[in-house]
């Protein structure tokens, strides 16, 4: 008895290999696409976080220091600074929040000591932070994130000296 088998063609070899490579290439390209999508999502979230966190931080600081008209805007070395005065152990001190060298910084210093903006503690990265007094005890804060998006927040103080 002779077994009946079909004759061998090159396609029997080539087709599975070709299909495998097509599958490999397409699945790898989908993987690269997925990685790009993840990177894009993470980047957008991080950038959105910059302005949101900076402006929320400023708003919270103002609310936590709104006593005796302590909150004001001042300019030091040409840089807008949010100044909040308070008494700590009977010593008058001021907290300054400002942008310096691409970073939002906070400096807590006794009144009367010369202010060096470089010495502030880094809070977070921000491209720019500008402040504008709209009316008495009403300010607009504008931040620009690393992607160039501008956002603003208006804050008011309610206390007076």
């Amino acid at each position: 008895m002779r077994f009946r088998t079909r004759s061998r063609h090159i396609i029997d070899l080539a087709f599975p290999i070709a299909l495998f490579f097509v599958f490999a290439v397409s699945s790898l390209s989908i993987l690269i696409l997925a990685a790009d999508i993840y990177a894009s999502t993470a980047s957008h979230l991080r950038i959105n976080d910059e302005n949101r966190t900076a402006l929320s931080y400023i708003a919270e600081k103002i609310r936590q220091n709104d006593t005796n008209g302590a909150v004001s805007i001042t300019s030091i070395d040409g840089i807008d600074c949010l100044a909040m005065s308070a008494l700590y152990n009977e010593i008058p001190c001021t907290t300054y929040i400002y942008e310096y060298g691409g970073m939002m910084k906070e400096l807590f210093i006794n009144d009367g000591i010369p202010v060096s903006l470089k010495s502030g503690r880094d809070i977070m990265a921000i491209s720019s932070l500008s402040m504008e007094q709209l009316e008495e005890q009403l300010w607009r804060f504008t931040t620009v994130d690393s992607d160039g998006n501008e956002d603003f927040l208006i804050a008011a103080g309610r206390s007076v000296p």
Partner: peptide, 9 residues
């Protein structure tokens, strides 16, 4: 942000 700004105003 926008609603809070309006509220403060």
């Amino acid at each position: 942000r926008y609603v809070s700004s309006a509220a403060e105003f």
